[in-house]
Amino acid sequence: MSVLRAATTKLDNNFRKDNLDSTGSFPRANQIENMYLSDRLIDGIYAVSEPTRIPVPYELQNEYLAWEKLSDEALENFENSLKDEER
C-alpha cells in the first residue's frame, strides 16, 4: 500500500502538538520536507491512503518516503470526515 497522506489523531495532538521534547524547545519543523514524516506526524496514529482514505496501521508509517504533509484545509476535511463517521 502506498501511503500518501497522513493525519493526526486526538492522541497525537495530546502528545505532540504543544509539546516540548529533549531538545528543550518545541519540536522543530523538518528541514528536509517530505524526506520523512513532519514533526506533527511522527507520532500520528492514523495514516490515510489515497484514493480510499482508509486509516492504515501505525506500522505502515515507516513508508515515510511517500508521505506528504497535509494542508490545514485537508486536515480539517479529514477530521470532519472522522466526525461524520462517528455520527
Partner: peptide, 12 residues
C-alpha cells in the same frame, strides 16, 4: 507538564 490530565503527563 500536565499534558492531558488525568491521563498524560510529561517530565523533561
Amino acid at each position: 507538564i500536565a499534558l492531558n490530565p488525568p491521563h498524560i503527563g510529561q517530565l523533561l
